[in-house]
Design a protein around this nucleic acid. Sequence first.
DNA 1: TCCTTTTGCGTATGCCATACGCGTTACTGC
DNA 2: GCAGTAACGCGTATGGCATACGCAAAAGGA
Lengths: 261, 261
Amino acid sequence: MTEKNGSGGGDLPASLEAAWGLRDRPAKGPKPGLSLERIVAAAVAVAAADGLGAVSMGRVAQELGASTMSLYRYVSAKDELYVLMQEAAIGPPAPLSALETGAGWRAALTEWAAAQRERYHGHLWALRIPIGGPPATPNSIAWWEQGLQALRDSGLGEGDKTSVILLISNFVRSEALMTSDLSAAVIARGITPEELAASHERTLKRLVDPERHPGITQQLETGVMSAPDEADYEFGFGMGVLLDGVEALIRRAADGEVKSA
Amino acid sequence: MTEKNGSGGGDLPASLEAAWGLRDRPAKGPKPGLSLERIVAAAVAVAAADGLGAVSMGRVAQELGASTMSLYRYVSAKDELYVLMQEAAIGPPAPLSALETGAGWRAALTEWAAAQRERYHGHLWALRIPIGGPPATPNSIAWWEQGLQALRDSGLGEGDKTSVILLISNFVRSEALMTSDLSAAVIARGITPEELAASHERTLKRLVDPERHPGITQQLETGVMSAPDEADYEFGFGMGVLLDGVEALIRRAADGEVKSA
DNA sequence: TCCTTTTGCGTATGCCATACGCGTTACTGC
DNA sequence: GCAGTAACGCGTATGGCATACGCAAAAGGA
């Protein structure tokens, strides 16, 4: 039962081992010509330039001037590379200023969500990477921890804290994914976002039946579809609703505490 | 400028044309041996049995006793098949009982979201299909319309109605996607959900540093991780928070109306 | 110095979507 | 009834993909 890593215990998934930097450098063979860091950086560059779909083992190797198969000396499968790319794209969270100034949970959560959103928007391709079960990479954990800190003084129970974090995290992801889908459609059809919106509105007007779809018909008449800065607006709207809901939850928790105290 | 469809106007994307049944049966050649419906049904069956990854043109053709290439007489590309599969999986919405009994927007939205969730949970593979821009398929539109109807008497403005619908739709998708990821992980590792949760908790305990991650450490100590029926609980929790937020929005809208009246 | 281990990588396998073209079929206009 | 035409089924070919396997070269440990 010889341990591979210094930390002891059972065997981690290969991708986690790599993400936490627990790989042991073997003392025997020739010097590695590449490194995990360089490979991940190259893959990230490809994804940023040409989308996640352009990330193939061959393409990444080419970018590094190496052969396709040499990558497999550093990465056990493409899925592992995906995990490391995602981890690199999101990066560690910056300190929350709202936590230092004691501005309260609402400001802290807002700042936290906005920071997360910014990372996603800077790396929209990362949203296309399929998640495999619950996250356990260093940066996801750091973001989770920071979310918990934002709720430090909220008075919520531990379970509720995680649930709120999860809820907001998923909301941020959803909004970014919508943005990503939109931009993908725009690129695929080679048009501007405005043209896409107009085209969509025209399509709807053709397909929607006023009898069967009175609500949508009304929406089309009101001209709601042609909203500018849609993504930013929807994000702010959603955060507002979400935080109001959390506020109600916190108030209820406080009332219950007072009652039971 | 001869029109292909009866409805007139410019050319729709092929997948939309198919979804709305606007394909014109050509009067010339031999009788088709297959049909879009049969192809989509076969593809859905494959996805249900072996996951979306198992859906290849070859596999679907095999299931139908036809050759791979014959499918391309009915479907212009695999993406189109995906759209039709998604549309078939979600299906049209059933009438909302809360709308008939006049139970109010909150009950209606709750029923609407639960129905949507049920469809997704019955076809988890459908969540893996990448969305291409804003939806315009018959069933997505029908669900959208129904959501608008649920908010009929809410007093919200048209723009807010759509935003709320979008917010809740995305939440339902997120929760279902988490479930799907979880079940994928469970299947991939050949273990029970309980074993997966336990394994994840063990992994976290090994990787989390009490100094750098005090919040998570506390969570682990409280034993929050080993929650049963996690998915159901999180869904109810999220819906509660969301609806409380919407309630605040509606109240504010009503107040504003009273003031400005 | 020899042996073990690890490196880079060429080759091969098997899957995939799909372009192209051919022979066949069935309807339409004459 | 017959020619023309258009849609059918599908065999074949192309190019891309992840990745298993094995070999030769490199480099540290004995």
